[in-house]
Design a binder for these strands. Structure first.
Lengths: 236, 236
DNA sequence: ATATTAAACGTCAAATCAACGATTATTATT
DNA sequence: AATAATAATCGTTGATTTGACGTTTAATAT
């Protein structure tokens, strides 16, 4: 029987960068660690990969434990493996980022983790190399969202154009001309207008839209251009 | 003292997808495994991550062992972690892809690995999940090269425009209008024309160019458009 | 009636694009 | 000296896209 006996085995973990949007603000979900090392410090939600799971499955499980949600947008960011990134014992971490609609999120479930949503630009510093992970995840989202419609994953089933524009403005930290934005959004043919309106933020009310799932899948690979000159912003 | 005693430790490996261009053809470097499991089958070059290295360092080392080359373009592709991807024992593999100029590569060094360059479209099937890795690496390169000038990493220090165009045509498996291509390449201002010519493939001879390293770095993030309508090709 | 936000419609000039035609340059071969 | 072959430049075309900006209409809470 063949074995790899002479090699060192290490721990493998998955950490999740969880982005959420509540219709107004872009946020990130962090937990306060209830155990050593780095007890009581802020951290990404993570966990060790179990014997029977693959990496994506581990990320799904960890995400479900914290949010109670399944079938989220979840994408591998990168593997991190500096020898000393975990002070206790060498641990390779595979980072995943998730995009979720905060309204779907049930607060109760996460109480045991002391989880909290932070504004994306106002989050505390994190343990280990988690700050790096968050930074790289933000970059990845900016990059990808300039070309593909991933930001829809952050929105509720029903959403308004002003909400969508607000989301893009926050992700790119820029102002977008509303008339051009609407024209571009309409030209993608990705949205279905509902009869219902959201009157919470204006007197007239803004029509709700839903995403046309089929067209979304079909057009996912086509490059979008909601952001004027994204190449000027990409390295922000 | 705190420990993570109850967790399972696993092997962590790095596998390298090595792309090379010899001025005419796009190729991939594979090794014939000289050891079990899967002895004598074709495989990517890989190795276990050592105690003192980070992941990138492990990839550099493995690449150096096989090619004798350092300071190559090397980028993490993805971590692969299906529980049964290695039949002997669970092994997480972090895949990296490298872009190299085949002319720099010294054959002798790799003899002990029975390494061989294969045409990108004519490679044998590989062990474990290595075929998947190669496929995903090809996709990544197509995606990235449509936006950033990474394909220059495959070219010799001195190269000609016909070589460059040939490379793009192979990566995207398409024909490109030469007049428009030249115009686009010139407009990037990335190339420096030499006085010397390459007369190996024509009577007139084609001027050699070198890459302006500074401008290359400065403009790396700007989106290129050497390929007409890349979004139509991206899913190939 | 008024204020306020939503959103549709239009305009305009500048830039970019792919497709294509034509020409010139260089040199090995005949 | 003519020919063939590849390299490279220059130009044109019309179509499309772009960002910036102006105007108007719609709906409704106050």
């Amino acid at each position: 029987m063949i074995t790899y006996t002479e090699q060192t085995r290490v721990l493998v973990a998955v950490d999740c960068i969880i982005f959420g949007f509540d219709g107004e603000q872009l946020k990130i979900l962090l937990i306060k660690r209830g155990f050593e090392p780095a007890k009581d410090q802020w951290s990404l939600m993570g966990g060790f990969v179990q014997a029977n799971e693959n990496l994506y499955g581990a990320a799904e499980r960890i995400l479900y434990q914290l949010t109670g949600l399944k079938d989220l947008y979840l994408e591998q960011l990168k593997a991190y493996g500096n020898p000393d990134r975990d002070p206790i014992e060498r641990t390779i971490s595979v980072a995943y980022f998730a995009l979720i609609d905060i309204n779907k999120y049930k607060t109760q479930i996460s109480d045991r983790y002391h989880a909290e949503w932070f504004l994306i630009n106002d989050a505390p510093s994190l343990i280990f190399d988690h700050d790096t992970m968050v930074e790289e995840a933000k970059k990845r989202i900016r990059y990808k969202a300039a070309l593909h419609p991933i930001l829809f994953e952050l929105l509720p089933k029903k959403f308004t154009i002003p909400q969508l524009q607000n989301l893009y403005e926050q992700v790119y930290n820029t102002k977008i001309d509303n008339r051009n934005f609407i024209r571009k959004v309409n030209s993608t043919d990705l949205l279905i207008k509902l009869t219902e309106k959201d009157k919470s933020s204006s007197k007239r009310g803004a029509f709700y839209f839903t995403l046309d799932k089929n067209k979304y899948k079909a057009k996912f690979q086509s490059f979008l251009n909601f952001i004027p000159n994204p190449e000027h912003l990409i390295s922000m």
